[in-house]
Design a protein around this nucleic acid. Structure first.
Lengths: 225, 225
DNA sequence: GTCAAAGCAATTGTATACAATAATACAGGC
DNA sequence: GCCTGTATTATTGTATACAATTGCTTTGAC
């Protein structure tokens, strides 16, 4: 499952870009727990590079809020708490609503076709219980929505959040019940956009996020506030 | 006008921190125009440091969206389009509304006091036409709102956007009419929070952003869509 | 035994040296 | 004249060397 994180700002062919992506993924996937100290030399050795690209990656990770650098002391992993997840889902619920609204006016034919195909395929894989494909299709549906909004700013922001809750999302769609329900919600959003109904599109996308969050709580993946 | 930008992520006692802050300010103030290429050695010589801290600052500036680094080629100052400004103000209008809503339940006494003092002082400086102070107080009012939301995620996000449109905002509050109106709006938001009226707080903060955006258009600072 | 100060080890901060890449200029062939 | 390939140069990418800082340990006085 390659993630292709932060396209445009992270160059994956440079050592620094690879270190950045790798560390980002490791932190989001929980390899490094909250509070763990990251040492430049150790990370460098693990990835086979010197301190220079590691340091540059650290500066970026700090700006993203994934680590905290205390001058002359060290770099510490900043965890992502249940409250953070909750906040992100609330922000996302509002911004995804906005994306759906804007998509009504800005979606291209190709995007619409891919979205329809996506919904169709998702139904199939959900019936078969193909979790990996379901996860990928869900990812792609949301990315499509962001791209269809026609706003680079909004797209960038939502992709960021989308990545941020990766760890949680992975576990979420596994339950067959949520999978089926999620598909229905995607389909409803798609229909609203197709029918150029901006109010419905926004409301449905908003509710979709709230439902996703509720599902995480119901499955005990995170604690409610 | 010291900006004290992005406190917590930029350490102003290191060379890198100073390079970062300085470049950031220079770009936001328009010293470097859109598309200008920044050379590591030249910047380093100008500030009396080697390439290392300059490079690290570049990576951070890229993540903030102020410059674009093309691998093996160079770093270029990124402009901010009218559409970007518009999108950001719409996103901000929604998220600031959320921040105001949350602030109703999470604002501390100290924050409330500072906010009241802020509003009071702003009135004074507006009457006197002290543009620099007005700008600083406006900045601080919004930051206070973000901090009062009690959400690290939301605060981080809004501060990001807030910084991003600094270039534009600097010119905006200069007009006396907007200054006065802006103060009244701040006061109304403050009152709503004090009265624990979440709906009003959200609505007023939302409208405040829309008005700020409208004002930029009316003053010809940006073109409407 | 306790506290403080000196020294040591480990780590980050910065400068510099070297490698790789990209842009430019120029020469030669057609 | 124009295209192409090569050499040159300038710039970025990476590694390493050195400086500064921090934390810990050890030592000594009381």
């Amino acid at each position: 499952m390659e993630e292709d994180v932060k396209e445009g700002t992270s160059d994956k062919y440079s050592l620094r870009g690879r270190v950045f992506s790798r560390l980002r993924e490791d932190i989001l996937n929980g390899k490094y727990d909250e509070g763990v100290e990251l040492r430049e030399i150790a990370i460098g050795e693990e990835l086979g590079v010197s301190r220079t690209p590691v340091r540059e990656a650290f500066r970026q990770l700090e700006l993203e809020g994934l680590i905290k650098i205390i001058p002359n002391k060290g770099a510490y992993v900043v965890g992502i708490s249940d409250k953070d997840v909750r906040d992100i889902y609330i922000l996302r619920s509002r911004l995804e609503g906005l994306a759906a609204r804007w998509a009504v006016d800005h979606i291209t034919e190709e995007q619409m076709e891919e979205m329809e195909e996506n919904v169709y395929l998702a139904k199939f894989h959900t019936e078969k219980g193909h979790n990996e494909q379901i996860f990928e299709l869900d990812n792609r549906f949301h990315e499509l929505l962001y791209e269809a909004s026609g706003s680079k700013i909004l797209e960038h922001q939502l992709k960021d959040y989308h990545q941020y809750v990766l760890r949680i999302r992975k576990k979420t769609l596994a339950s067959a019940k949520r999978g089926t329900q999620s598909n229905l919600e995607h389909e409803a959003i798609l229909e609203a956009i197709k029918n150029k109904n901006a109010d419905d599109a926004e409301r449905l996308a908003h509710e979709h996020m709230i439902n996703a969050y509720r599902n995480m709580i119901d499955n005990g993946l995170i604690k409610p506030e």
